[in-house]
Design a protein around this nucleic acid. Structure first.
Length: 494
RNA sequence: GGUCCCAUCGUCUAUCGGUUAGGACAUCACGCUUUCAAUGUGAGAAGCCGGGUUCGACUCCCGGUGGGACCGCCA
């Protein structure tokens, strides 16, 4: 099983969609599993809607996920995408072949005329007026139109002469035999003119030219597949194998789209999901390795991948599970690496412009220590700023928060004073261990909460945070004392 | 409306005729604990319905119901 060649063929009309990313991922996994070749092909035949910036986004998104093409024009030291707009000569040749063979014809209906509205839309879109003209008759009208209106002014379109009354069957590797009635396909448009191909023609020509062995794409393409089979046959080429992936669904079970919120890979990247996590999560959406593993490395996924394990039904994109998985990956990251990944998010929160409170650490060390505290708590990197802001600026206190259980004001003040006293015995650069031991010794068998809760809130200003010893070890004793005083002040002022 | 696809816990899934229907996320409870996490233990939670086939169906077949996709001179 070599000579496996697959492709992902997005149109650059928007940022890399997670659905496209998943299709790319499955193609990639399939290719890697079989030692085959994965190709990125940008389907930019629609000049109006295509945009270079989206092409760039798609390429970068795939690269971020670690899905790199194995072939293609060089781009920044990597294999870049093929572009359909750079291959027009090929399409022209194939379109001409169809025209010459009488398998395609010029149709002179106005735009949208064949796209009848209800209830006539239920009839097949067969172009009976023009499909039976001879090659020369059609050519003559075409030339007359060109003369009158100029070339490429939308006066005609080239349609495929779909055979009548044929059953078109093909094997789908995910759902077995599929069968369609050719009469329901209509004479679909394949080009605006010989030099301006449309989707169906361009895909098939490219898949032939690129020797694509397996077409793995979303199930929304199932209705297109019989058309493609017809085209492959018209060119005398055996169609590739097809595998249609179940769709990714939103919480309402409809195809995932904008109204479901984040849907581009860029969105996830900006929210602080790790590429490995998204890669792993997407792989498990509509596929499973055949055992109970959930967290799998790229290599493990490649080794385990098989199209037979692909699910038939659509899968809802479960954000909670993604969050869990991202947390798993965050916890597994080496600290220094995680700190580096998190730093841009701190930057974005505007926290890095503040100076740090403890000069026994460099800023880098300071950040690393903070990240260490948050590593087990973080679900996505974008949460970091809000969680650790008290390490960069003094907290603002909500009085009620300082009280432990039903503690009264007097008790609270006493508690803070006691903490202050204990801290006063410590050196500025005390380690967490020393701080902790000092406190625990002082508390003895007593109630920890009444001392530690107010202290922790005084330090962080937060309802939930890492423990006070950890915080003090980073903040330094000096700043810790300042905060206790500030908390006391906040209590007495009214 | 037509064509096509699909159908196991709330969600992602295992099961390829015989299981107390398993796992994961989420939820809840308990343990650890100064809070929040992490972590440990445990609990609740599913075969859409109706026919067949069979000694035996979640599993195979048919029908229904439900959900979805597609019906462009977009891809």
């Amino acid at each position: 099983m070599s000579n496996i060649r697959v492709r992902i063929a997005p149109s650059p009309t928007g940022n890399l969609h997670v659905g496209t990313a998943r299709a790319a991922l499955f193609n990639y996994l399939f290719a890697k599993h079989h030692g085959g070749t994965f190709i990125l092909r940008i389907e930019d035949t629609d000049l109006e809607r295509s945009d270079k910036k989206y092409e760039q986004n798609i390429f970068e998104g795939l690269q971020w996920l670690g899905i790199d093409p194995d072939e293609g024009p060089e781009q920044g030291g990597l294999y870049g995408p093929y572009r359909q707009t750079e291959r027009t000569a090929k399409y022209e040749e194939y379109i001409q072949r169809l025209l010459d063979a009488g398998k395609a014809f010029y149709c002179f209906h106005g735009e949208g005329e064949m796209r009848e509205t209800q209830p006539a839309a239920y009839a097949p879109h067969r172009c009976d007026e023009y499909r039976n003209l001879t090659h020369d008759e059609g050519q003559a009208i075409k030339e007359a139109k060109d003369k009158e209106y100029g070339k490429n002014t939308g006066q005609y379109v080239i349609r495929f002469k779909t055979p009548i009354g044929e059953k078109i069957m093909f094997t789908d590797m995910v759902r077995e035999e599929l069968s369609f009635d050719s009469n329901l396909l209509g004479d679909f448009a394949i080009a605006k003119d010989t030099t301006i191909p449309l989707y169906h023609l361009a895909v098939v020509v490219d898949d032939i030219e690129m020797k694509i062995s397996h077409v793995i794409r979303g199930e929304d393409h199932i209705p297109n597949t019989p058309k493609h089979v017809l085209l492959f046959r018209a060119f005398g080429v055996e169609p590739p194998h097809f595998a249609h992936l179940p769709l990714i669904l939103g919480p309402d079970r409809s195809k995932l789209s904008k109204r479901h919120g984040a849907m581009s890979v860029t969105d996830y990247r900006e929210q602080g999901y790790l590429p490995e996590a998204l890669f792993n999560f997407l792989a498990l959406l509509g596929w499973n390795p055949g055992d109970d593993r959930e967290i799998l490395t790229k290599d493990e996924l490649i080794a385990a991948f098989s199209l037979e394990k692909v699910q038939k039904s659509g899968a809802i994109f479960d954000f909670q599970k993604l969050d869990w998985m991202n947390g798993e990956y965050i916890r597994r990251k080496p600290l220094s690496e995680l700190a580096e990944l998190a730093t841009p998010f701190l930057e974005k929160s505007g926290l890095l412009q503040f100076s740090i409170f403890n000069f026994q650490f460099s800023k880098k060390e300071y950040i690393e220590r903070i990240i260490a505290l948050e590593q087990s708590r973080l679900k996505k990197l974008s949460e970091i700023g809000e969680r650790v802001e008290y390490f960069f600026k003094p907290p603002v206190y909500a009085k009620e928060l300082l009280h432990w259980k039903n503690m009264g004001d007097a008790e609270l003040l006493a508690s803070l004073e006691r903490a202050e006293k204990i801290i006063g015995e410590l050196e500025q650069d005390s380690s967490r261990e020393v701080i902790e031991k000092t406190f625990l010794d002082a508390i003895g068998e007593g109630d920890k909460g009444s001392l530690l809760w107010p202290l922790r809130v005084a330090l962080s200003g937060k309802k939930a945070s890492p423990g006070p010893f950890e915080i003090m070890a980073i903040l330094g004793i000096e700043e810790s004392l300042k905060r206790i005083k500030a908390a006391q002040a906040a209590l007495t002022v009214d």
